[in-house]
Nucleic acid binder design. Structure first.
Length: 431
RNA sequence: GGAGAACUUGUUGC
């Protein structure tokens, strides 16, 4: 506004940047309005601006609008490019809307669209997700003919997405196929593989990969060990955690802040506060600086198992060392206070966080709703929920779930059922 | 010189 007032007309880049900023902040509505306004007072945002809006619409789950916007682009004087198509393909794939995805791919083929390597990756990912191995294989071949051979990047991307989807058998297939194709797995790929196994709760198998790495002379790094420690901590005894921690040291791998956060979390979740404080001391002794993750993890552990003054003390330390509390810190404390039944205190803290300029997020709001429910305040909970619903950002399963749980506990079944319908209408899929 | 997608490890809500 200042620019326009002073007669300095924003150019295309400025306009696109502004649209991008609103999109990144999750304010799609504002971004859409901006599109019109900019056309009047400055320059119409171009391709980049439009792409930002598509991504933002997808991110908040407004698929139909995103697609409509994408399809209407030519009429709005903005022809989609490779980047745009690839984005849409990626998003459709992520959303599991495979029918729409394949229809789009078919249409693009008809129109003679020329994909780039990233497009291939996205499309292959779609086929892989649909279990269409044959088509995926054909595309991999086609891609290697038209572009460079599928490098570790492509395989890694595909395996990561399979792993994320929990399709471990397919991911292993792909891994084998890659090795048969003569590609030697590198550290990054091993780390990725360990990571999907860990995410799937298979830490024993993950440890087998470590053995394979050691056998093949591919040295694990701190990321490898961190993933393993995380996995072992989730599924095995603390002895096994200790064993891996020692193993890592014997191999000369220096633990970093991530390592310590993982350890603090695992020991904290099991209520082993002595070990938690011991590890925290050790890390500082060894000259490893705690970061936000470390402090947050520590605060959570300490707050769950001990008096609240320890947590307040940590909060002050954080400020002192230049690592001030963030949303997650406040979320941890608000949830912790709620669990102790100190709902009023939690609300005060919420106010303090806002005053301090820390913007609450979805998790803050669902925590507050759950907290209000603990006090039987379902009306206030519903009120804040309705307030939130005016924004795009309310499209979150857990937020709906929290509200529904509160309503059900208070016997407000009609409202709860209404909520279920509302979320479906919003395109938020109940879990 | 400034804006855009997917791409390995840790913390928070039902």
């Amino acid at each position: 506004s200042k620019m326009v007032q002073q007669g300095c007309k924003p150019d295309v880049v400025a306009c696109n940047s502004l649209v991008s900023a609103y999109c990144k902040a999750g304010q799609v509505e504002a971004a859409l309005n901006l599109l019109e306004e900019l056309k009047q007072i400055a320059t119409s945002p171009t391709l980049l601006g439009h792409e930002c809006i598509i991504i933002a619409l997808f991110k908040v789950g407004r698929f139909e609008e995103a697609l409509k916007f994408y399809n209407n682009m030519p009429e709005n004087g903005c022809t989609p490019g490779v980047y745009t198509h690839t984005t849409v393909i990626n998003e459709l794939c992520r959303a599991g809307q495979l029918d729409t995805l394949f229809a789009l791919i078919f249409r693009l083929q008809q129109e003679g669209f020329i994909p780039n390597a990233s497009t291939y990756v996205a499309v292959i990912e779609g086929f892989v997700k649909a279990g269409e191995w044959g088509k995926a294989g054909i595309l991999i071949t086609e891609m290697s003919r038209k572009h460079s051979a599928p490098g570790p990047g492509l395989y890694n991307h595909l395996m990561a997405s399979l792993g994320r989807a929990g399709e471990l058998n397919d991911a292993c297939d792909l891994f084998r196929r890659m090795e048969q194709g003569g590609l030697v797995p590198n550290l990054l790929m091993y780390n990725c593989s360990i990571n999907w196994l860990v995410k799937a709760g298979k830490s024993v198998e993950a440890c087998m990969i470590l053995e394979e790495m050691e056998a093949k002379k591919c040295s694990p790094d701190v990321v490898t060990y961190n993933s393993l420690l995380h996995g072992i901590g989730k599924t095995c005894s603390l002895d096994k955690v200790q064993e891996m921690y020692t193993h890592m040291a014997t191999k000369g791998c220096i633990p970093d802040a991530v390592t310590y956060s993982i350890l603090l979390d695992t020991y904290g979740k099991r209520g082993r506060l002595d070990e938690v404080w011991g590890l925290f001391r050790e890390m500082k002794q060894k000259g490893c600086a705690p970061d936000l993750y470390t402090y947050n993890t520590l605060i959570k552990s300490v707050f769950n198992g001990g008096p609240s003054r320890e947590a307040s003390r940590l909060l002050k330390t954080m400020e002192k060392v230049g690592c001030p509390a963030d949303v997650i810190t406040y979320n941890i404390l608000i949830a912790g206070l709620g669990k102790r039944g100190q709902i009023k205190k939690a609300l005060n803290l919420f106010e303090r966080m806002v005053v301090k300029g820390c913007a609450p997020d979805l998790i803050t709001h669902s925590t507050l709703i759950t907290n209000l429910g603990r006090d039987g305040e379902w009306m206030s909970a519903l009120e804040s929920f309705r307030h939130l619903q005016k924004q795009d950002t309310c499209n979150d399963v857990v937020l709906f779930n929290s509200m529904i749980t509160v309503l059900c506990k208070e016997g407000q079944l009609a409202e709860a059922l209404h909520m279920l319908t509302a979320m479906e209408e919003k395109g938020c899929i109940p879990n």
